[in-house]
């Protein structure tokens, strides 16, 4: 009896999980279809570009600056154990553009954007604004989801690129100001060992992360429960899910791009 109950519980959880994955996958397909099929809401897209991209610059920039600076200190401390202090500029650059720029930038944008998108759309749902959109002959997927997903997919790579530059600059400041590197040598080493695909892979990661962040925020917002508690739960779930998805996608993409 106990075994049957346990198996039944496992079955219910599995079926529930599969149903959730199916719902999320269908939502993603509908969102992508909405991006490429008219009507297009250009004003909403520009607004999303501004709120998701431009207004995320300070948080991404500061994160990158301190990460680059700390990375320089860590690599210097580690490298000095086997007289490899000179690798600081190149490792800072490679580490920032390949991994830390996209991942930390993505996580910061997830915290800022997935939460606000989920809360905004969730509030719209509980106050019947989504229903109102439908009665005004406006598809919420096209009006709310598509502009946000497209804007995030396009702007997060730009944020990552800016973050890469600022992060490398953070390493440069510490390297030249504290660790005794010559300024021109630092810059030369940074550029010499950096390959095109190091930067390109980070930007691709940024695009994927941006897509996941906005999609997750919209999904949880659209499926928000009732009342303030429902919106709060949707917001929390959106940030957690976006963060986990970013880290999982980062592993998969790194495996695809760099596995031998």
């Amino acid at each position: 009896m106990a075994v049957a109950r346990t198996l039944g519980g496992i079955g219910r959880v599995t079926l529930g999980s599969m149903a959730s994955i199916g719902r999320a996958a269908l939502f993603m397909i509908r969102a992508v279809a909405a991006i490429f099929t008219p009507p297009f809401y250009v004003r909403e897209f520009w607004h999303a570009l501004l709120t998701i991209g431009y207004f995320s610059l300070p948080v991404v920039g500061l994160t990158a600056l301190f990460t680059g600076a700390a990375l320089a200190l860590q690599i210097y401390a580690g490298g000095s154990r086997f007289q490899a202090e000179s690798v600081v500029p190149s490792i800072v650059a490679i580490g920032m553009v390949r991994e830390l720029g996209p991942v930390l930038g993505g996580l910061m944008v997830a915290a800022r954007v997935a939460s606000s998108v989920a809360a905004e759309i969730g509030t719209m749902k509980v106050t019947e604004q989504i229903d109102a959109l439908v009665t005004l002959s406006t598809d919420p997927m096209r009006y709310l989801t598509a502009p946000r997903v497209l804007a995030a997919t396009l702007t997060v790579p730009v944020l990552v690129a800016v973050g890469d530059i600022i992060g490398i600059f953070g390493g440069y400041l510490v390297g030249t100001g504290k660790l005794g590197f010559n300024a021109s040598t630092y810059l030369q080493n940074t550029v010499t060992y950096l390959e095109f695909w190091d930067v390109g892979s980070g930007l691709v990661k940024g695009a994927v992360f941006g897509f996941l962040i906005a999609l997750t925020g919209c999904y949880y917002g659209m499926n928000s429960g009732r009342g303030a508690q429902g919106v709060g739960r949707a917001t929390k779930s959106a940030v957690v899910a976006a963060s986990v998805l970013i880290l999982a996608a980062n592993y998969v993409l790194t495996e695809v791009f760099f596995a031998a």
Binding site: T123, M124, T127, E128, D131, A132, S137
Partner: peptide
């Protein structure tokens, strides 16, 4: 819906 209008209980205005 093209020839339809609705007043919602809480107005449902877009913030």
């Amino acid at each position: 819906l093209e020839r339809f209008g609705m007043l919602f209980q809480g107005a449902a205005l877009f913030d």
